[in-house]
């Protein structure tokens, strides 16, 4: 078991080191997410007033789009350097490699979210920050769920033709529940009165989604990645 986590940690550290040196994925996907938010601000903010409930939706749309970009790019990097094959040939548990990759993507997206939140809060006058713990839990649960599915599909797509087009096609229909839950949960934070029961329901739905899909991904990563 400790070996499993050691492999995951090594993969994670490798990804983070590569990313820290170039900041390529972080800067490009963040720029993309910010442009998406600005587009929405142009469309939905009129005379200084935003549409009700728009902020929560836009946050998650931006995260989903930036996530797609980051997922594609992380594995594209491995593919170009032919290192994914080396990684898969290494005498290590394949699910551990998956976990390492997953943690890297989650970390990247969480940092992106931290930058996006104040921007959206400022442009849409959304009070995200009144319940910080709830906010953190919702963002974490949603991001984990989205990335759990995304990392698996992006890894499988490395060998496929037209992988850039196929990733959203595969990912979005499956990620719909976690996006619905994320948007609704974030909307409770922005609402005039914070409804704890509602937020708890959406958070537990996301937590259940995370557990089910991380388990499924760990279980099916091996057969899915073998030729």
């Amino acid at each position: 078991m400790s070996r499993f986590f050691r492999v995951a940690w090594i993969v994670l550290r490798k990804d983070l080191t590569v990313e820290m040196r170039s900041l390529e994925i972080f800067s490009t996907s963040l720029f993309f997410a910010v442009s998406v938010v600005l587009f929405f601000a142009v469309a939905f903010v009129q005379e200084g007033r935003a549409l009700d409930g728009a902020a929560a939706g836009i946050l998650w749309i931006a995260v989903a789009f930036a996530g797609t970009l980051a997922l594609g790019r992380t594995f594209e990097r491995e593919r170009q350097a032919e290192t994914l094959r080396a990684l898969l040939l290494a005498p290590a548990d394949r699910p551990a490699i998956y976990v390492g990759k997953l943690l890297g993507i989650i970390a990247l997206l969480l940092v992106t979210e931290v930058v996006l939140l104040p921007l959206i809060a400022y442009l849409f006058q959304a009070g995200f920050f009144s319940h910080l713990l709830w906010l953190a839990a919702i963002l974490l649960a949603g991001t984990v769920g989205y990335c759990a599915v995304g990392t698996l599909f992006a890894a499988m797509l490395v060998r496929a033709r037209s992988r850039d087009v196929l990733l959203p096609i595969l990912l979005y229909p499956i990620a719909i529940p976690v996006i619905i839950a994320g948007v609704r949960a974030t909307a409770t934070l922005v609402a005039p009165e914070f409804d704890v029961a509602l937020a708890r329901f959406w958070l537990s739905l996301m937590a259940a989604y995370d557990v089910v899909f991380v388990t499924l991904a760990l279980w099916s990563f091996e057969p899915l990645m073998t030729d």
Binding site: V149, A160, L170, I174, I176, V212, F213, L216, L224
Partner: peptide
Amino acid sequence: YGGPGSDKLAAGLALFGMANVPFI
């Protein structure tokens, strides 16, 4: 459009799609 390996890919999608129904 998936090219080689799309059989596994599609099977994974079907598996996840089934698991997704109760969540939706």
